[in-house]
Amino acid sequence: MADAVRLYTRYIGASLRAQMQYRASFIMNALGHLAITAGEFLSLAALFGRFGNIDGWTLPEVALFYGLVSCAFALCEGVARGFDDFSRTIRNGDFDRLLVRPRSTLLQVAGQELQLLRVGRFLQGLAVLIWSAATLGIAWTLPRILLVLGAVLGGVCLFYGLFVLQATLCFWTVQSLEVMNTLTYGGVETAQFPVTVYRAWFRNIFIYVVPLACVTYFPALAILDRADALGSPTWFQWLAPLVGVGFMALAPQVWHFGVRHYRSTGS
């Protein structure tokens, strides 16, 4: 285990040194990301300018959801790049290379790249989060700070699990991956609002199937001290981010099933 961690850090070091070779284009890319996400948030603000609220939630409250999910997703996109980009690894035949090395395939894919680029999106999410907290006048007690960190980390784990599932799908097809985007990017879009604004069947997908609500909606309720229209108990709201960790723990089983399929069909 310690050996795996050391190798992972070596991989990440190599990836960072490689990215530093393209500094100018990196800065340009990060700024580009910052611009588009900032623009999206301003567009959201424009809607609140027209409508005032959504089901009784104001812009600064929704901004808390937005900030949590943006930070989590940006961090995850940074570390899970190898899985996000796995269809290319399969198409190039580079997965064969990973199989002839004496290390777990999961570790090797995870170590493929740490993408710094997502720092733009992360900073934007963080700014929105801070603006929201300041506007709402949230009292920052230690438990609340820990809950915010827990929600973001739980979110990173959840998205990481989704990226591993998406990569696993590549063992069968590299053509219909866009469907997985509905769960990753679509999940981000969905989680920017309280799940109660959606219809019940859709809401339930993001509570029970892909439990994104557990890393945004439920902890946000506890942070805001609001009662849940769905009736969840407070203790659950505090522990909900752990569900994200559990979700990630399931992903390796599916992955190994995919690797077995690959080794028997070679495609």
């Binding site: 070596r10 991989y11 040194r17 004496p102 290390r103």
Partner: peptide
């Protein structure tokens, strides 16, 4: 994107 020697060093770590 890395110098050859760094790839060699990484392989040392991969193969322990």
């Amino acid at each position: 994107d890395l110098p050859v020697i760094e790839s060699f060093d990484l392989l040392r770590d991969i193969y322990a």
